[in-house]
Nucleic acid binder design. Structure first.
Lengths: 259, 259
DNA sequence: TCCCTGCACCGTACACCATACGGAGAATGT
DNA sequence: ACATTCTCCGTATGGTGTACGGTGCAGGGA
């Protein structure tokens, strides 16, 4: 997708687009003035994805919002995959990065919280195949900022990389659960009780307590405690606390060795 | 998507399909014999997704593989979203669940390893919006099995739920990185050096060492150590060790309180 | 001044996609 | 024998991303 091959010797067009602000806009064009801009395209795309979900985001809808015809969007952006890369980098830069401060725990919490907030603001980030994040300026700045928060602890470079990767990866799970629960809550007209009642005949056959003794008990307890099937925010805090405990222990051991 | 509303009083068709084997097939139909089966449809879909990726999976291709015309697939399955639910549950059941044994650490590693292997066998699991996993028999069995592995440690039911959720969620990050690296490695004809050389002019402007001192250093170290941009398997082991350390500490504290 | 050239915009078209609807015909129960 | 019911599928609708080629504008060079 985003790794389409470009011509021999041609530098990556996506790279150039990602860094367009720092590289300076290409100057002195010949033809008619552009009616829009790369930023306008990216902004429109982000707005659509925020408001109505990534699945309804289409080149045609972007064009419509910009007062263009569909094919004109392709004068700004090579394709949809590249556009999504640009969207990711754009939203990665919309909040300032506060100078890391406080204990290691507080610093790691800050990294996680930054990602968490971003996922809640832009739930579509969780639906895109963001495995290989585009190396845009804002994503790069964020990475540098995250590493700076754990600089000077006695960790090797490799370990620093892995710690930040661990924190960043951890957040995805609970964030997904959170936005999904919210989406379900907003979209469905049916209450939990109605669903249960409607499916009672099958569920009785299915949820055999002899086969599911533990999950039955745990599910019931969780349902009562959360007032719903899950509490992703609590899972976020619980999991983060465990992960940070593990990291702290590792840092303590590593600095003991280094000393 | 998978939460389409069914008619008043109608029990969920997806639920019935998921549990079709244990519920018993509907018996005594009137019309012509079916030429395929729900299982055949699901198997065909899984094969296509495994071989050529989830993005090329279409109802038409499934029909083709089964010797049917596209619309006939809909006599077995209500739609594509429901089919994907069935696929998820099918692959969740393709390996036996060994009886939990060994230390807590070994048990948690076993849970994580089971998920890791599954993601490597079926990378498309990482690309689907699997936030709300379908409550099919194999997914349910897996959940019960996971909980059983940490039963009797003195954790509350809520904590058990959260521990298993944490482990399951953690695996996704490194698994994604792994399959993505592999995909890239297989698809691109260009070596890392060629890419670097081709983009050197922009990269020099972009990767300002004054702006990215730490990530520059860490990236270089990681690249040399891994012989590539990342080592997801190592990240898996590193992260898992930290997460389990955190969980062990929590369990120790919880059992101290309970005592 | 005039023209050449390069570019923005876009009309059209292609190859897909999921799936709604209704009809033909097969197998069964009565 | 007939009515019923269910499978299979032909057709169609309304979407998608994007390739290709054309039109006309605007700035640079002669």
């Amino acid at each position: 997708m985003s790794t389409e091959s470009t011509g021999r010797g041609e530098p990556d067009r996506t790279l150039r687009l990602l860094w367009r602000h720092r590289l300076g806009e290409p100057v002195g064009s010949r033809g008619p003035k552009q009616r829009a801009s790369v930023d306008a395209v990216v902004d429109a795309a982000v707005e659509i994805a925020d408001d109505e979900g990534i699945e309804t985001l289409s080149m045609r809808r972007i064009a419509e919002r910009l007062g263009l015809k569909p094919m004109s969007v392709y004068t700004y952006v090579p394709g949809k995959a590249e556009l999504i890369d640009l969207m990711v980098d754009r939203v990665a830069g919309e909040r300032p990065l506060p100078e890391p401060a406080g204990s290691l725990r507080e610093r790691l919490e800050q990294i996680a919280r930054m990602a968490w907030d971003e996922y809640l603001r832009h739930p579509w980030l969780l639906s895109i195949d963001t495995s290989r994040p585009p190396l845009g300026p804002n994503v790069s700045d964020r990475w540098e900022w995250s590493l700076r928060a754990i600089e000077g602890l006695g960790l090797s470079d490799i370990d620093m990389d892995q710690v930040v990767t661990l924190i960043a990866g951890f957040v995805v799970g609970p964030a997904r659960a959170y936005v999904d629960a919210e989406r379900l809550h907003r979209s469905t007209t049916e209450s939990d009780e109605e669903w249960w009642e409607r499916n009672a005949p099958i569920l009785e056959q299915i949820m055999d307590p002899a086969r599911y003794p533990i999950s039955g008990r745990v599910g019931q307890a969780a349902g009562e405690e959360y007032g719903g099937p899950a509490d992703p925010e609590r899972a976020f805090h619980f999991g983060l606390a465990r992960v940070i405990d593990g990291i702290e222990a590792y840092v303590a051991a590593a600095s003991r060795i280094a000393r």
